[in-house]
Write a protein that binds this DNA or RNA. Sequence first.
DNA 1: TCGATATTTCGACATATATCGAAATATATA
DNA 2: TATATATTTCGATATATGTCGAAATATCGA
Lengths: 111, 111
Amino acid sequence: MSKYRDDQIKQFAEIFKALSNPNRLRMFLHLVTCCVPGTVGSFDAEAGVSACVGDLGRDLDIVPSTVSHHIKELHRAGLIRMERRGQKIECWVDPVILRGLARFFEEPLTT
Amino acid sequence: MSKYRDDQIKQFAEIFKALSNPNRLRMFLHLVTCCVPGTVGSFDAEAGVSACVGDLGRDLDIVPSTVSHHIKELHRAGLIRMERRGQKIECWVDPVILRGLARFFEEPLTT
DNA sequence: TCGATATTTCGACATATATCGAAATATATA
DNA sequence: TATATATTTCGATATATGTCGAAATATCGA
């Protein structure tokens, strides 16, 4: 039997659903490789290591309303944080959840 | 930009799609906690650390045909291996893909 | 060979999802 | 205040998914 509670399993399933669309996964990877505070580059509330919605849609060949929809899904799953800064809305990856996902797949290999 | 090729991104998206259904995720976790050869218990082609389709459907409250469907999805995503042994079909987690998933979420935190 | 057990295939159906385009909202700047 | 830029909301549509039940297939044991 699993070490995870039922609600935790549902939460992980939500996370994986958010990452199950190739375009959404690309956005997530874009953020992961540039915008994880405290790891790749330091996060400064002023400077902000992050990307706005427009940045994430570039090179993806989908219209802004679809980008917005995908970002909302990533946010709902708890994968990213968002904050308005002027006209733009900045996004970055929540490092806590990233660590939790790493452990999810690591642990069965080490225990 | 991402370190992953387009086809790799699509493959990861397939994997996450396979794990995006709570029942399927439960089956995967069941296998992960009992049937990863070389880690949790040793894998022997004769003895076999694995679970059959019936085992995986137990406690899940879904009919066998649905279990079969879900297992096929996990297999198509490359997450599990299957082999007939008598009447039963045994399943176990591919440790290589598990390692790949751990790295997928680890690496942005360590580079 | 017959019956029991294990699993898959097939067809159906209800629900969810990805995407678009048009219109609305928020913010900055001239 | 008017205009430009950034983003969201809404409605539509085509496609995918989860689940079931019935029927088919595979294997074992009497």
